[in-house]
Write a protein that binds this DNA or RNA. Structure first.
Lengths: 249, 249
DNA sequence: CGACATCTTGACTACAGTCAATACTAGTGG
DNA sequence: CCACTAGTATTGACTGTAGTCAAGATGTCG
């Protein structure tokens, strides 16, 4: 499992990049983008493969262009906890540190827009906009991590599942910029096991609670992965969060 | 409980500030410190009182100069989870957002070095060093939050307690810059209830596990709060983390 | 089809939560 | 000085939620 296949990906011009408006480069001016364009390189990691292992030397930083990756921690006895879910435009790696602190694994095929760490650090010094954007993104991630801590520490299994579904729906909705009327549907981008690692549960409990939510009519299932939400408010009630959706405000 | 006593504190020159080398201003030059010195003001919050409530307008940012504060989230039914433990030099508030996302409460008497949010944002634009330092600090906090997520999601009650004690010992040691030989001792800065909120447990479970660790000889107790660690390695084994202390590396 | 991943369900267990009684400590006022 | 109170902590008995172990179902791909 230590093999790390790499496929070269055709070069996309920054101005045509699908994540330009949300990624670490979002605030850059045209000339700065040209500079980044000359320095970047693409890398593709197939589903199921590891991008970096915790403790490994990591001489690059990257933005997720497409696909989903996870950040996980593992204890010696095998218990694992997901600590980050990386979606397109999210940033991987840390300026000012050369060793990866967590495992990064591709859940689907993932395309990365990479920079050599040193190159990026130099560019960051010259270009305050990059550091500013990275600060914004990091603060957002910290807020998300803190919501996640409430989930892990205090929510019931049922609330955890409902919250995860709500998070996925919200992201999906923001992507497809649709209203929240009518039945919502989507495909789960995670296996039951990955959901369990995300939520601090076992996969059996995840399975049971999904069945329970189905029996209660909160969700409908087509196959194992395709989910329909007949009534979003009903789902939100199950999350344990504020009725009018503090996190959806 | 909504009362928020404020006491004015004598002005300390930045160059004499005890947290200068670790706070958000750590990278500033002399002239920049002079500028900050003119803009800052002190505020003291007594133990047990709230600095800001989640959802409140927050028109300032601050560094903790002395004392301990907590960041907490509360669900409607009263379940609460601590999501941040703020120690001297830690930063409170978020540039670019005016509403507090979490409750901030003083656990001990707390002294804050405050700036009006707008003033600070302007200063940050002019002074890249501040933004750089804030980015470093935020990345460190994010890493800490992720360790904390592993604890909340996957560790047993006993491991949680041991981990918390190890964190306190480590901080204490770094403060007093001592070697790790000989028996270590310290006072718990948190009540059993606050520990429970930190660890995602009930206060009864915290009490039971502390008793259990005492009976196993991992820790010794004098009174309710004073703890002696006869053998640090023994404690570290109980945390569930890597034997040679990945987090102590 | 058969092989393997993934998922569901059941039976039982165990860890932490709940409810409740009691102890300890510090502070207040008669 | 002691009684009283309030906050904090400990311990016990019992319960319940989620974990464990195991069998079997479903789905996908060669």
């Amino acid at each position: 499992m230590r093999a790390q296949p790499q496929v070269t990906t055709p070069h996309i011009q920054c101005e045509d990049c699908p994540i330009l408006h949300r990624a670490v480069c979002a605030k850059c001016e045209t000339d700065e983008l040209q500079e980044l364009d000359a320095l970047k390189y693409y890398r593709t990691v197939p589903a199921g493969h590891t991008v970096v292992w915790s403790g490994d030397e990591m001489d690059f930083v990257a933005s997720i262009v497409s696909g989903i990756a996870t950040l996980t921690q593992t204890m010696e006895d095998g218990r694992t906890q997901m600590v980050g879910l990386l979606l397109p435009s999210d940033f991987v790696g840390r300026p000012g540190r050369s060793e990866a602190a967590f495992d990064v694994t591709a859940t689907t095929d993932v395309t990365l827009c990479c920079f050599r760490k040193k190159t990026f650090e130099e560019m960051m010094m010259r270009t305050p906009r990059i550091g500013q954007r990275l600060l914004e993104m990091t603060l957002d991630e910290l807020d998300a991590a803190r919501e996640w801590m409430l989930l892990l520490g205090r929510k019931t299994a049922r609330e955890k599942i409902a919250t995860l579904l709500a998070i996925i729906v919200r992201r999906d909705a923001s992507l497809r910029l649709m209203g929240k009327d009518g039945p919502l549907e989507f495909d789960l981008p995670l296996t039951r096991e990955a959901m369990a690692d995300y939520l601090g549960l076992t996969l059996e409990t995840v399975s049971r609670q999904i069945s329970a939510l189905r029996k209660s009519g909160v969700i409908e299932l087509k196959g194992k992965r395709h989910i329909t939400i007949p009534d979003l408010d009903r789902l939100l009630e199950e999350t344990g969060d504020d009725a009018d959706g503090g996190m959806f405000a």
